[in-house]
């Protein structure tokens, strides 16, 4: 279980937002392995710059891409930031929750 592995190793791998750095894993899923998606939800508290920063750190994406996703969350109320397997999605959501962002995991319709 990826989530349990992350929790076990968490204290050794914490980064600035309290979540493990997973750079390079953002594009790791194949097209046939995308039944789940990580969705970030808008809230009136988290600062926009902080949201971008967290997305960069967790998903290893560029600052420009993170800003696009952050604006989508802000303007549409939600944005899908990753899709792939359930286990990996749960790991990402747990990192987003650690950073205090509202996020959930949804099955792709």
């Amino acid at each position: 279980m990826l989530l349990k592995q992350w929790l076990r190793s968490k204290n050794k791998t914490m980064n600035a937002v309290g979540a493990p750095v997973k750079k390079g894993q953002f594009k790791s899923s194949s097209k046939t392995d995308k039944p789940w998606q990580v969705v970030v939800l808008d809230d009136p508290v988290n600062l926009m710059e902080y949201v971008s920063r967290v997305l960069v750190q967790i998903f290893g994406i560029s600052k420009g891409r993170a800003n696009e996703l952050m604006l989508a969350v802000h303007e549409k109320g939600r944005a899908t930031v990753w899709s792939g397997s359930r286990e990996k999605g749960e790991m990402y959501v747990s990192q987003l929750h650690t950073a205090q962002l509202n996020a959930t995991l949804e099955k792709v319709e």
Partner: peptide, 27 residues
């Protein structure tokens, strides 16, 4: 009880209450 709020965003199958929420509470 901020950590519970995050737990409410996940379904029961994820076992968030059992695994993640206690970790969030500590952090």
């Amino acid at each position: 009880n901020l950590e519970a709020r995050f737990g409410n965003l996940m379904d029961e199958d994820s076992m968030w209450e059992e695994i993640v929420v206690p970790e969030l509470k500590v952090d």
